[in-house]
Amino acid sequence: MSQLIAQSIVSGVLLGGVYGLVALGLALSFGVLRVLNVAHGELLMLGGYLAFFAFREWGLDPFVSLPLVFVVMFGFGVLLYLCLFRFVTRTETHTRIKNSLLVSFGLALVLQALAVRFFTADERTISTAYSSEAFTIWSIRVPMVRLAGLVVAIVAAFVLEWVLHRTRFGKALRATSEDWTRAALTGIDVRRIYQIAFAVSAALAAIAGSMVSLGYSVSPSIGLGWTLKALIVVVLAGLGSMRGIVVAGVALGLVESLSSVWIGGQYREVTALVLFLIVLSFRPLGFFGRAAGA
C-alpha cells in the first residue's frame, strides 16, 4: 500500500509540473492583458500536435523541436492577438474579461474542430527510443519523459521570473499589468507588451503540449480539461509569482493522484474541481490581489 502511495505521489508530482507549466502561460495572459483565454488548452493541444508531427514526419526529437514549437506558436499567438484579442483589449477591464472569455470560447470550438478535421480524433503519443526509460529509487519508477515535463516547468518559471525582475522589458510588463493607462503615460507601448505577452503565453502552452505528447498523449478534445487545470492552478496560486504557480501545479497533481488512491480513479478530476470551488469561494472576487510577477 505505501508502495502504491509513494508511486502515485511521484506520478502526481510529475503530472503537476505540467499543470504548472500550462498555468504559467494562462497567468501571463490573464495577468498582463486581463484577458481570460479559455482556448489556452487548445493552444496546448496544437503544440502537442506540432511536436508529434515534427517527430513523425521529420524525425525531430521533441527536445530538439522544442524551440521550433515555441517559435511557431509564438507566431500563432501574435496572429491571434492581432486578429482577435486586440479588439477585446480595446474595452475597459470589466467588459474585457467577459468578452475575452466569450471570444476565446468560440476560438476553442474552432480550433478543436479544425484539429479533428486535420489531425483526426485519434490519441497521439510521441514514442521515442527513450520513451520507456525510467530510473528507480526505492523501487519507485520515475519515467524520464515525464520527469522532463517537471524540469521544463521549473526552468520556464525561473526564466520568466528572471525576465520579469531583471530586464527592462519585464519591468515594463509588470507595470503594464498593474495599470495599462499609467504604463502608456510612462512611454510604454502597451499594445506591443500585450502582443508579446500573449504570444509568450501561447508559446508556453505549446511547450507544455510538447511535454504532454511526449509523456502522456494528445487528442483534439483535451483542450477544455487542460484549461480547467490551468485555471485551478492560477486560482490556487494567484498571479503573484511564477514559482508559486509551479508549486501550486505540483500540489494539484499530488491531490489528484492521492484522491485517486483513496477515493477512486474516476473521481480524481471531480476532487480537483471541488477543491477549486472551495478555494474560489475564499476568493469570490478573484485573484487580482497582486499584479503578475510582483
Binding site: 527592462r168 519591468k171 509588470r174 507595470a175 499589468s177 498593474e178 504604463a183 512611454g187 510604454i188 497582486r290
Partner: peptide, 19 residues
C-alpha cells in the same frame, strides 16, 4: 499615485526612462 506600486523605487525610475 502615478508610480507603480508593484515595482521598487529604482524600478519605477528605470521604466520611467522607457522611450
Amino acid at each position: 499615485r502615478a508610480a507603480f506600486q508593484s515595482l521598487t523605487v529604482a524600478e519605477n525610475l528605470e521604466v520611467g526612462a522607457y522611450t
